[in-house]
Write a protein that binds this DNA or RNA. Structure first.
Lengths: 352, 352
DNA sequence: CCGTAATTTGTAAGCGCTTACATCCGGTGT
DNA sequence: ACACCGGATGTAAGCGCTTACAAATTACGG
């Protein structure tokens, strides 16, 4: 690459562009040793005399040398990077999970590479392709749109951890969340408070989380002997906007209800706003329960009752499972049970 | 690395671990051409006969070949990656910015590598070191704790875009947000509604954003001839919790106020909760204004009046500026003006 | 039909790092 | 004193890719 070197030299002479970073070779020359010795000192791979070690460390400090991760990755055949695919990096839900992953991996010498799938299968495949091209050591997927078949296929190329799903296959570890139980807990809570007309705002229909939560909702109703009224179930989009629209539709439909179970917290936020718009008070007129227990839910007015699945712990656990897989072990990670966090958005129905 | 190859071969024979990914060489052999030809086809670097091209493309598809990004990076001396340092990836504020960056860069063939500085200078330096080691092509910093001096130093090694700050130096482009004007707008809005006792919940004191916003607040008061009462200014922490505490303190101090300007939306969320806890209604008893206009602010109950600086646009602009720098151009990006979004958390003070 | 220029292709030299293997050293045992 | 040994260093061969330069092929004009 003599041409490039020449270019760099030229640039350096005329502009303020950064110098080419120092290399092992430069450090070796500066310290008067061979590059192998420098490498060994940096990695602590072998015994080196104290004298040379000092010299090399001085040279490293002097040149401000930092090993080139790409070169090392090439030589080692691993990148010390874990790819992470979520649907949207700016969602408060995924944000907490990413934080958990990042914290966990960072402390163990790995770097997380985040990408957003945008709820789109094609985008998700693009992300996979990119991560594979970067030769990440493993990929963590937060409940994506990819089918099990495709995941199994990718798992042939790289270890996979899939959160929020249950899926058995070679080289894949899945970390399912007990959506059904969470939804059951939430619905039962409303029932115990005395509610009988409980509406449910679902997410996108074919989304696995949504259907499991729907199942839990129905089971709780059935357990209490309350007939399920399909008119009280309306679709949403997992976002605030969907919560607003769904609630408006519900309110407009004339079907009475005194409580509202939302497929996730963001939907619940929207629902609360819609109630407010219609002059209804939560929880006096309508009780609302969410799912996920986002950090900001405890700061809502009123603080939101929600099902906690600690997405942050989910993130950490995913990281832990991945590292175990990389170690060649079968991960033995499991998630804490979902639990209902009762706050102030739920109350007994007004008796009239 | 014959040892590694041997290892791989052994593993492959006995376990389900992934095969070593195909290489250029394997594609070349499969297609019966030289590796140079394959490379040229992949990159479109030179004319190649249609015949060979087809053969190579077939081989690529057959082997499911994906170029190794690390190897390419090494050879090219660039990684097509932009490092991004924020304080916390799970903050709704930064989340929106990251999304902007990711969207922008992705469409242009770059990948963003996110890291969290955790509001800690040391962590931030660790992030810089990691990014530099990965030889990212540039680094975008969201208003970090690093001093200008240090930034200028890093800028010698890699192009920098710094958002939310004003800073002139070689190889650094800064994208300042007009915090002062935003704060002025917010405070003036409260004044125009008729408020005279306006409290301010500041962020962390030495944080530049906080002090600029404080400045805008005082200037608006001064412009209206309202004396500044230091007792109405209390520190916060940019989070909900700080907002709760600060408001409680304010309420407990006995100093009357009818409006509250919070250094950011999260603080305002906390403030609203504290008011609610004390049985006070927003906006009837106390008006509240935030800053940042987070997405969820429009879904609060009541929807929060806030200063919009579109952090998402900030992200996109940072990406655009970075790409321009990489092109060797002087970026000509600027941000849209901050604007006040009036919603329902502010109203005229109750007359008593 | 041949020489020569204009392609298309292949060969091989790196990019910066790790590590197997060779080399060199001082210290032992006899 | 000498063969021998173990540990500290150095040498050099890759890791998978790009690309300068050489070689081979093709297309022309005379």
């Amino acid at each position: 690459m003599s041409k490039r070197a020449a270019n760099n030299a030229k640039k350096r002479a005329t502009t303020a562009l950064p110098d080419a970073p120092p290399t092992l070779e430069m450090v070796a020359k500066e310290a008067g040793v061979s590059i192998a010795t420098v490498s060994r000192i940096i990695n602590g791979t072998a015994k080196v005399s104290a004298e040379r070690k000092d010299a090399v460390e001085a040279a490293i400090a002097k040149l401000n040398f930092r090993p080139n991760a790409a070169a090392r990755g090439l030589a080692l055949g691993k990148s010390n990077t874990i790819g992470v695919i979520t649907q949207a990096i700016d969602s408060p839900f995924y944000g907490e999970g990413l934080r958990g992953i990042e914290d966990y991996l960072q402390q163990r010498g790995y770097t997380a590479l985040f990408m957003s799938g945008n709820w789109d299968e094609q985008d998700e495949e693009r992300c996979m392709a990119e991560l594979l091209s970067r030769r990440v050591d493993g990929i963590i997927i937060f409940s994506g749109r990819l089918e099990d078949r495709q995941l199994a296929h990718y798992a042939k190329q790289v270890p996979l951890v899939v959160s929020g799903r249950s899926l058995k296959a070679q080289n894949i570890f899945s970390l399912p969340v007990d959506d059904e139980r969470g939804a059951w807990l939430a619905t039962r809570h409303l029932i115990e408070l005395g509610h009988r007309r409980i509406a449910f705002i679902a997410g996108i229909l074919d989304h696995p989380d949504a259907s499991l939560r729907f199942k839990g909702y129905r089971r709780a109703l059935a357990d209490a002997g309350i007939p399920h009224d399909p008119k009280l179930v309306v679709p949403g989009d997992f976002h605030e906007e969907g919560g607003v629209e769904a609630t408006m539709r519900l309110l407009g439909s004339g079907n009475k209800f005194s409580a509202l179970f939302c497929v996730n917290d963001q939907t619940a936020y929207g629902a609360c706003l819609a109630l407010y718009r219609r002059g209804l008070n939560c929880p006096r007129d309508v009780s609302v329960v969410g799912f996920d227990d986002l950090h900001s839910s405890s700061y809502r007015v009123p603080p939101l009752t929600s099902v906690r699945q600690s997405i942050r712990v989910l993130g950490e656990s995913s990281g832990a499972a991945m590292l175990q897989m990389l170690q060649g072990e079968q991960p033995d990670i499991s998630l804490p049970q979902v639990e209902l966090i009762v706050r102030e958005s739920t109350a007994a129905p007004a008796k009239e």
